[in-house]
Design a protein around this nucleic acid. Structure first.
Length: 271
DNA sequence: CGCCAGGCCTGCACGC
DNA sequence: TGCGTGCAGGCCTGGC
């Protein structure tokens, strides 16, 4: 499911409902996520007040004063608010029970998500410390893309999806941004000129921004924290459109595989 | 049955 | 030897 726009949509939907609220209890129904959920998490969270809800890459960070609850939605995770007593379904692995009669619920069928605790500054957590700059920060620009690609022969699409280069860009938005930039996904990264890196950085930001405005993309079962589906998928230019006409030139969108991931592009518009 | 799916970490092989 | 880089595999369930 979620790349940066979906995580940010979730954050924006939940933050006003959670910040300042007190956690009555935390319920872990399944400890077997990508990493084990800490056994003592309920004790750490009970009685804490949520001070802030922020995001770093695809990680959600709940500032609880004494430490931070770190949450990742993996491929199939969804986080939303339900009323206390709402029926629990098969893959509802984690609940934060608030003292106002609502519950923050994590559902994650594939269990590639994470629920972790970190005392102190969450950005020091090993999983977060190594992440590249936020795409909307001034640190991420064409100069950075140009610098980090100089010695890399791997395809530019795989560089975009490398979270150590830039945070939050997954398969969908890498495909879409490359189309907007007019760059072939298989282009060896080191062959991009500085000018093309400038365009690409700009298009990455534009694509993510447009997706956030649309409330993210809803594929399969993803819905936002408010239960509403995002609709950026209706604006996809290439992702999932193999064999369909390019919205710009009318030619046929092509699909290849890169690193076991589907890549879609227009051979005419992307060089 | 096999293959595919929005993520991302680890370990290994390789070349400089 | 050490480092960066580039792959493949693994973690899971569900849908086609």
């Amino acid at each position: 499911m979620p790349e940066l726009p979906e995580v940010e949509t979730t954050r924006r939907g939940l933050a006003p409902l959670l910040v300042g609220k007190r956690i009555k209890a935390a319920i872990v129904r399944h400890h077997g996520l990508r990493q084990p959920v800490p056994r003592n998490l309920p004790q750490l969270l009970a009685g804490a007040t949520i001070r802030k809800l922020t995001r770093r890459g695809k990680y959600l960070l709940f500032d609880c004063g004494t430490g931070t609850l770190i949450l990742h939605l993996g491929m199939s995770g969804r986080l939303w608010l339900v009323k206390a007593g709402a029926p629990v379904e098969k893959h509802d692995h984690f609940d934060l029970v608030l003292d106002n009669g609502t519950v923050v619920r994590l559902r994650d069928p594939r269990r590639f998500g994470l629920v972790l605790w970190h005392p102190g500054d969450p950005l020091d957590h090993p999983l977060l410390a190594a992440i590249g700059p936020e795409p909307f920060s001034s640190e991420f620009d064409g100069a950075l893309l140009h610098r980090v690609t100089r010695k890399r022969s791997v395809a530019i699409k795989q560089v975009l999806m490398d979270s150590h280069v830039v945070a939050g860009v997954g398969n969908i938005y890498a495909n879409e941004a490359l189309f907007r930039a007019g760059i072939r996904p298989a282009t060896p990264a080191q062959r991009l000129t500085r000018a093309r890196c400038d365009v690409l950085a700009e298009k990455v930001r534009d694509t993510l921004q447009d997706a956030i405005v649309a409330g993210g993309s809803s594929l399969r079962d993803y819905v936002g924290s408010d239960g509403l589906a995002g609709n950026f998928q209706s604006q996809f230019l290439v992702y999932g459109r193999a064999g369909q006409p390019c919205r710009r030139c009318g030619g046929s969108i092509k699909e290849i595989r890169q690193g076991q991931r589907a890549t879609c592009y227009c051979p005419h518009c992307q060089k």
